[in-house]
Structure formats: structure tokens, C-alpha cells
Amino acid sequence: MRPARALIDLDALRHNYRLARRLGGGKALAVIKADAYGHGAVRCAQALEGEADGFAVAFLEEALALREAGIAAPILLLEGVLAADELPLVAEHDLWMVVHAPWQVEALARATLPRPLDVWLKLDSGMHRVGIDAEAYATTWQRLRALPQVGGLVKMTHFSRADEPDHERTREQIDTFAAVTAGLPGETSLCNSPALLAWPQARGDWARAGLMLYGASPFAHGHAAGAQLQPVMTLESQVIAVRDLPAGEPVGYGGTFVAPRPTRVGVVAMGYADGYPQFAATGTPVAIDGRPGRLIGRVSMDMLTVDLTDHPDAGVGSRVELWGRQVAATEVVARSQTSAYRLLCGVKRVPLVSVGG
């Protein structure tokens, strides 16, 4: 069997959730959209269900998969419904939904439902993607509050630059949210992962922990709170072939790496079809049998190459960690023209193996 796999540390997942909840000071949703950022949504939800205040997914199909797997905790649809005919299913499966557009308000007003729905009304405080405009927010809140189809009503927004701790945009969005929602009762939700870690002034009743839940920092540079995170995924494989090259010989497609000295090359069963970044540069860190090593040459679809010259005991069967406990995902990101979000969400084809119970 091919040795490539992704180990999913469920104890680390629980640690990161508890950190998010502690930093937020209130309740926290575990964001497990996009198959829990590539970590396996059902298994992550099962690992957290005993302590998570609820979960968040992008759209209805993701929520229904969790319900079918027996997840009974609250689940918030971050995109809300995408069509009016989804509303009965939202009610049937006891889901919460974000309302971010006027047409969703009108769809709710026309719907015949077996029970009122809990709604999170999203303010566009400056992200300018989705959300109710500041001028219309209070009126929309009052309209929803009066509808028999609406039960609980939470006020929320989303930050566009919270991963830049020194940028004033987040402060501006916090101030906009406070001004627009002043006098409107009910719970609030502002913090995504970077805001939880870097913007204590943005705390609300509900936090929404996404990337940090999986142990990856949202910041381009080090951050004190981010250092407390534990990586959940360890992507690993093994050396499947070894060859010795004289100085001056190239390795792989395009000959992007030329051996500067006699070089011992290890071929690893891992490639961009598995989700390892295709454009990771020579020198991207790996761990070889627990010791620091480096990638050399261009990443192929199914294989990549590492430098074994200073690893005399390594050979066929040697374990290679691509990221995880020894190699931080952010170190790979820094050399790969990508982001931590894309890195983790892009993992595919390799089996997910849960550890930590």
C-alpha cells in the first residue's frame, strides 16, 4: 500500500477549540466547512461534540451530512440558504442560518415552516462581500424580529484584515458594528480566528474558530497567541527510492535543482495530486526520520525529492514528514506561493487516519 497519509490528531483539535473558547470569553462555534478544512468533518465533529457549543458549515449539504452522521449539536449555515426551497429542510433538521441578503429576508417572510428558525443577521461592516448594508441593518433586524418564522436573532459581522494585527481596518469594522447595532438587543458574533488571536477588543458572545482550530496560524509572521496552537494534521509518507548523483546533475522536471556536490536523492511518495504544493521551492523544510531535511527539485504529481546527503542512515522506508509537529505548515506556506487555508483544504487522495481518540 502507498505510504502517504494524513494523521489527524483529535487531542490537538480539542486543545485548539478550548483555546479559542477561552480567548473568546464566551461560546464558540467550531467551523468545519470544506470537510473541516481537509481534516474530515464528520470525525472532527464527533471528536468535539461533547464540548463544542456548536458547529458552522458553509451550506446546507455540509450540514445534512453531519446530521446524517448523528451530529445533534447546533449547526450554523454561514452562507444561509441559497434558495427559498431550502428553508423547510433548515427547519426540519433544526439548523441555524445566516441572513446576509434582502432576498433571504423576503424568503423567510413568505415561508411556511414547522418551527421558527434561529437567525444570525450579518452586517457588512467593511468586508463588502455579503451582508446587510449599515443603513438598512436596524430596519432589517426589526423586520426579522417581527416575523413568526424567526426565533433567536444574533448580530454578526466578518473581518477582512484581522490577520494584519497592525491594520486599522479591523478597528474601523469594530466601531462600525458597535455603532450600527447599538440599541439592538441580543447576542453578538464578530471574531474569526485571527480576531480571536489578535483583537481582544472584538470579543462578542459567540466566536467562530476556523483555521486556528486546525493548529495553523493565520498570520504571516509569528504571534504570541498563535504559538499556543497545536497542529492537527501531520502529512507524511516514505522514501520509495534512492539514487546517488554526481555534482552538476539535475533532478526532476525542468532541472530546477542541480546538485552542487555529490548528492544522495530520496524519492518520496507524495505529490501535488495529494495536495502538496506544486510550486514549493527547493529548500522547503521536511523532516526525515525525525531530523530536519529539505525538498529539492520540482514537485511532481505523485512524487517529490529530498536531499539525503546528510542523512546517511536514511533510505527506502524512511519516514518523511511534509508538515505537522516537526514542520510547521506556515513554513511550507512561506516557500510555496500559497496560504495555510489552501494548503490544508487542498489535501486529497491520501487517507485520513485519526489519532488521539
Rank of each mutant, 00 (worst) to 15 (best):
residue 336 S to P: 08
residue 34 A to H: 04
residue 336 S to A: 15
residue 82 L to W: 02
residue 284 T to M: 04
residue 67 R to L: 09
residue 302 D to C: 02
residue 53 D to S: 09
residue 86 E to H: 10
residue 5 R to D: 09
residue 86 E to M: 09
residue 196 L to H: 03
residue 33 K to Y: 11
residue 343 L to G: 14
residue 74 P to N: 06
residue 300 S to R: 10
residue 267 V to F: 02
residue 295 L to T: 07
residue 247 A to R: 15
residue 105 V to K: 02
residue 228 Q to I: 08
residue 353 V to Y: 00
residue 119 V to W: 02
residue 259 A to L: 04
residue 274 D to P: 00
residue 103 W to E: 15
residue 229 L to Y: 10
residue 332 V to Y: 10
residue 227 A to V: 06
residue 165 P to R: 03
residue 189 S to K: 05
residue 48 L to D: 11
residue 42 V to Y: 02
residue 147 L to I: 03
residue 306 V to A: 04
residue 111 A to L: 07
residue 173 Q to L: 06
residue 121 L to Y: 00
residue 168 E to G: 08
residue 133 D to R: 13
residue 193 S to G: 05
residue 290 G to E: 01
residue 38 G to A: 08
residue 69 A to S: 10
residue 139 T to P: 00
residue 131 G to F: 01
residue 118 D to Q: 06
residue 252 G to T: 07
residue 208 R to C: 14
residue 265 V to H: 04
residue 201 Q to E: 15
residue 24 G to Y: 06
residue 169 R to C: 00
residue 33 K to N: 13
residue 202 A to L: 11
residue 266 G to N: 07
residue 243 R to K: 13
residue 225 A to D: 13
residue 279 F to L: 12
residue 59 F to L: 11
residue 103 W to T: 09
residue 356 G to Q: 02
residue 320 V to Q: 13
residue 321 E to L: 00
residue 60 L to Q: 03
residue 305 T to F: 13
residue 346 G to H: 15
residue 285 P to I: 09
residue 177 F to E: 01
residue 195 A to R: 01
residue 230 Q to L: 15
residue 248 G to M: 06
residue 125 S to V: 07
residue 256 T to L: 12
residue 167 H to V: 01
residue 274 D to H: 15
residue 264 R to D: 05
residue 52 A to E: 11
residue 180 V to R: 01
residue 204 G to L: 11
residue 51 E to I: 08
residue 282 T to Q: 10
residue 233 M to R: 05
residue 350 V to N: 04
residue 284 T to D: 06
residue 73 A to D: 04
residue 352 L to N: 01
residue 243 R to A: 08
residue 245 L to D: 10
residue 345 C to L: 12
residue 327 V to G: 10
residue 4 A to C: 09
residue 336 S to E: 14
residue 137 Y to A: 04
residue 354 S to L: 10
residue 37 Y to G: 09
